[in-house]
């Protein structure tokens, strides 16, 4: 479904990604692991079109999307939940959700079923509908960021550190919802520093170091891999 081939990205003289290749099949949830500065966020930003690659290609459903603007990639079903959630602070919860229907909504089209789907996953958001984005707690903001992305009717979700800054219980709550979304058939590429949590939802994972993929495999193999255990699980 989502294919990345030989992707290289530099910021000026600094190389952030160096020939990264990976693939995510339809309906799969894949984790992207690695320490700070390994290039995980850059990879997501390149896939969603915010960053231009120097070399390599990104394709969706077998078609290269390299020349496509980020706005149009969303219309192709690729939605990126950015790091630190980035919800719209001066829009209410409901407005945050409504605004994300822009890619597909035609005049008069109903968004009720989409809203219901989000509110079923995150009942808290239903209660908070009229509140401004800035007034939400960190966990609620993360739920809103995920819910907002779902409103764009994505087939592939890119998630950047959904557990960042959340208390452990809330992070688990978010991950429980992510596995439900995955069960709905939404394909996911998940960037996460919390390796154990990411591997609990993902079926496979890639480990990124200094802009290279250094390890790839099934979650069950990665979690027992000595290198992963030492570097990322603190074992």
């Amino acid at each position: 479904m989502l294919q990345v081939e030989g992707l290289s990205v530099s910021y000026g003289p600094v190389t952030a990604l160096d020939g990264v290749s990976l693939a995510v099949s339809k309906g799969e949830c894949v984790a992207l692991l690695g320490s700070n500065g390994a290039g995980k966020t850059t990879l997501l930003r390149t896939i969603s079109g915010l960053v231009k690659a120097r070399l390599g290609s990104v394709s969706l459903d077998g078609k290269a999307i390299d020349g496509m603007s980020p706005e149009n990639r969303v219309r192709k079903g690729l939605c990126h939940v950015p790091e630190r959630r980035r919800i719209f602070p001066g829009l209410t919860v409901l407005e945050n959700l409504e605004v994300a229907t822009a890619p597909w909504r035609r005049f008069g089209a109903s968004i009720a079923t989409d809203l219901d789907r989000v509110f079923e996953l995150f009942p808290r958001l239903r209660e908070r509908r009229p509140q401004y984005g800035w007034s939400l707690s960190g966990g609620e903001q993360q739920m809103l960021a995920i819910g907002r992305a779902l409103m764009s009717r994505p087939s592939v979700l890119l998630l950047d550190e959904p557990s960042l800054g959340l208390a452990p219980l809330l992070a688990e709550e978010v991950y429980a919802r992510l596995s439900e979304i995955s069960a709905m058939g939404v394909t996911m590429l998940l960037v996460e520093q919390n390796t154990a949590m990411a591997l609990s939802v993902a079926s496979r994972g890639y480990v990124l170091e200094h802009g290279h993929v250094v390890l790839a495999g099934a979650s069950t193999d990665l979690i027992t891999n000595p290198r992963v255990r030492e570097a990322y699980l603190g074992a």
Binding site: S48, L50, P70, E71, V74, R75, C79, H80, P82, R86, I87, F88, P89, G90, L91, E95, N96, E98, V99, A100, T101, A102, P103, R105, R148, A149, S152
Partner: peptide, 23 residues
Amino acid sequence: SLGRQFRATAQDPEAATLMGIRV
């Protein structure tokens, strides 16, 4: 809905782009 997109873009143009809004 145009106004919502307008305000969303004003508050965070990059996040608006990621939501498919034609900034």
